[in-house]
């Protein structure tokens, strides 16, 4: 092949040549592990001999009678449900405040976005310091208004709530960021029309802002849901799942089953449940987003 023909051939097939490395990499590092995990979930490995044996769906079956699994699922659901709802409500409120123009708005925006940019692990230890027993700031503040100190992340009753509070501190800024961007890109005409029709602020919000903001809302909530369903870092460092498993989330339980108790088959089986859960939840949003034509371009 002479060079001219070679260059014509490469021009024709350029689209595939450029895509290939990325696709191969992703196949090797995400699809292959997934297939491997599926195979592992159907096996059990003997601790004594290291011998693998095929057990069919036994690992999946034992999930259903495992109280610790249901506990982890429940914690994950509460964490996700409460966390994401509060983050959305607060994020929307602050986005509405910051979408008006006033002196110092840019500065407030910059400050408010900081928590989201911090490494999650740093956020976790920061709140460990704040929640410190006896000497912590949070209990000192409660003392100022005459409330007795709490155990925060080390008390079985308060631990999950304390972790959710950290998540809200860290990720409300994300909702604010996306929703504010959504608000600022809204067209002006519908509002002028609503004004002419004599709509109140609340009516304009319900019938104009909210529908137009839907794509941004869907994206923001979807990305937060995906991240909280898999929550690991903060829980690992702040409580390790304790006390008395009261903060154990699905990812953490999978980690413990796989790496502490070396029960790889069972751990991967549970991780598939998490995958299915994430996929089902995401697909609800993604199909709405496709209807809104966000992911098509």
């Amino acid at each position: 092949m002479d060079s001219k023909r070679l260059s014509r051939w490469s021009d024709r097939n350029l689209k595939y040549l450029l895509l290939a490395p990325t696709i191969v990499l992703l196949l090797m590092l995400t699809v292959y592990p997934l297939v491997f995990a599926l195979a592992a979930s159907l096996q059990t490995v003997s601790v004594r001999t290291g011998e693998r044996s095929f057990v069919g769906l036994a690992n999946f079956a034992s999930i259903f009678s495992d109280g610790l699994f249901w506990n982890a699922l429940g914690n994950t659901a509460v964490y996700t449900g409460v966390g994401v709802s509060v983050e959305f409500a607060l994020g929307l409120a602050f986005a509405l405040i910051l979408s008006e123009s006033f002196l110092g708005r840019g500065l407030f925006r910059t400050i408010f976005l900081a928590p989201m940019m911090l490494p999650p692990i740093v956020v976790a230890i920061t709140f460990k310091v704040i929640y410190m027993q006896k000497y912590g700031v949070s209990n000192w503040l409660l003392g100022l208004i005459g409330i007795k100190g709490m155990l925060w992340e080390s008390g079985p009753q308060t631990a999950l709530f304390s972790l959710i509070l950290v998540d809200i501190w860290e990720w409300t800024p994300f909702m604010l960021l996306i929703l504010l961007a959504g608000l600022q890109s809204l067209p002006a005409e519908p509002y002028e029309a609503a004004k002419v029709d004599g709509a109140s602020w609340l009516q304009a919000f319900r019938h104009v802002t909210f529908p137009l903001l839907t794509p941004a809302i869907l994206i923001a909530v979807l990305l937060r849901l995906m991240d909280t369903l898999r929550i690991f870092d903060q829980v690992f460092v702040m409580t390790g799942g304790g006390p008395a498993n009261s903060t154990e989330t699905l990812s953490l339980y999978v980690y413990q089953a796989g790496f502490r108790f070396n029960n790889v088959g069972y751990a991967t089986a549970m991780s598939f449940v998490l995958l299915v859960l994430t996929t089902v939840v995401s697909n609800v949003f993604i199909s709405r987003l496709r209807a809104e034509e966000v992911f098509t371009q």
Binding site: L19, I23, P33, A37, V254, Y255, T268, S271, L274, S282
Partner: peptide, 25 residues
């Protein structure tokens, strides 16, 4: 659209599911 979306969807896997096989690899 399919390839773009497939690439995005690999980011949706919870990392805990790939980390065990990846460790063994």
């Amino acid at each position: 659209a399919r390839v773009s979306f497939w690439i995005l969807s690999t980011r949706m896997f919870p990392p805990i599911i790939t980390v065990i096989p990846l460790f063994q690899l």
